[in-house]
Nucleic acid binder design. Sequence first.
RNA 1: GGGGUCGUGGGGUAGCCUGGACUAUCCUAUUGCGUUCGGGACGCAGUGACCUGAGUUCGAAUCUCAGCGACCCCA
Length: 475
Amino acid sequence: MEEKTDALPPIADFSAWYNEILRRAEIMDVRYPVKGLYVWYPFGFAIRKNTYNRLRALLDVDHQETLFPLLIPDHEFMKEAEHIKGFEEEVYWVTRGGLSELDVKLALRPTSETSIYPMYALWVRSHADLPLKLYQIVNTFRYETKHTRPLIRLREITSFKEAHTVHCTWEEAAAQVEEAVRLYTEFYTGLAVPVLISRRPDWDKFPGADYTIAVDTIMPDGKTLQIGTAHHLGTHFSKTFGITYEDLNGEQQLAYQTCYGISERCIASVISVHGDDTGLVLPPSVAPVQVAIIPIIIGKRRDEVLSAAEGLLTELKSMGIRAELDTRDMRPGAKYYHWELHGVPLRLELGPRDIDAGTIVAVDRFKVKRQISSAAEVGPLLDEIQETIRNRAEGAREAKIRLCYSIDEIRSAVQGGVAVASWCGDRACADQIEAETDAALLGSDLRGPYNERLLDTGCIVCKKNGTAALIGRSY
RNA sequence: GGGGUCGUGGGGUAGCCUGGACUAUCCUAUUGCGUUCGGGACGCAGUGACCUGAGUUCGAAUCUCAGCGACCCCA
């Protein structure tokens, strides 16, 4: 197999690979003439659709979907001081209607707390209204000044799933944060994307939150990508917006709130975590095309091959499998490259030899070839591929995590992965770690077996008691 | 936030330093017809580009400035 001039950059050159794959696999068109805004190609949008359908299904169990306005009046947006401080540098403002100046400036939501909570103040009357669990999937706007990146750092986030819940007690809200973490873990398991869950340091939590639990994944270059957050809002916003309920004794009480969100970064993670030098690798759970059927057309048996292929297509579709028959006038090899680039998990080849033998050639995305005899074998095969992809990603994650017992070890670990080390929780110790390792302290209380594995060594700086902290460079 | 590189058909490039024969190179993609088809086909005939604006000049893809946009490195 000779080298091709139009080869994809290797995934080891992650930045170049990422930019190329978005265009070649028809996920995003980055040529829209405004910085930080991008266009979904239909194929990319189909991945989004499959992914968000899964997210909806998870939430719909005990949340309700809703939709709030994009524009937020100045006076509502400005109500919560801490929240404003967190966002004021990056809010877009609508100041004119046609030719006339607006009396009340309108903010394009950078997130929807201040859009939703004035209404929550009206909706929540009594303890019987609680818990309230709503979510919406919307676009949000942030005037990013740093380097924008498709799906990762955007000026218009097109696919922000944000849930906002209201509860009677702090503990109930805390339990909801845990429930959110559970939902997100399940969501990412379905995408075969391994995650790291930790508690963001106080200085890095959501503006207006008691605390923030973050979901990160590790990209091929070892940098982390935050792909989900869950915030305990305490009574910060209920105080400001007057969200109170009447309790059993007939007294007004402040409500406790949470919010949690996932954006199209989840798509970025699927693309990046699974991709390889050949192109995209999509788990069957979200692949727009799960099976590509390639007819091998030879001269006079053309019609025979095509009708067999169509029969196979119909059969697969009737089993609920997303299959496509590729009848384009190209050589079969060209089609193999095309579908591999697009991450299709399984390819079925059907030619005269197979028809004569009553078989089908099945080749998975990792180029493992099998001979199958019926469409019924395809479903189980897809499940197996899903599992293979998950294991592969899990292995890659493990290889990028290093337990560290010294600053030097951290410094080297974060060159191509992440470090896990004990940290006491003090800002001063974190500052020292960050200054000496050229990385960020991303979170404490890292979930998983890490506390035990670190064997109570104490904070890596001051030796006081600590928890497993996640340290790395991030997007 | 600071620094750097760059903008030429849909994508990737040559040309720019040293302004004029540029009717702008090559690869890829793409349209039509034909022959093909078990790992990126071939032939013939086509289509398609100098980021925007201002300036210098007899003359600008090429020089100057600004804007917009892209990428890389550092904080």
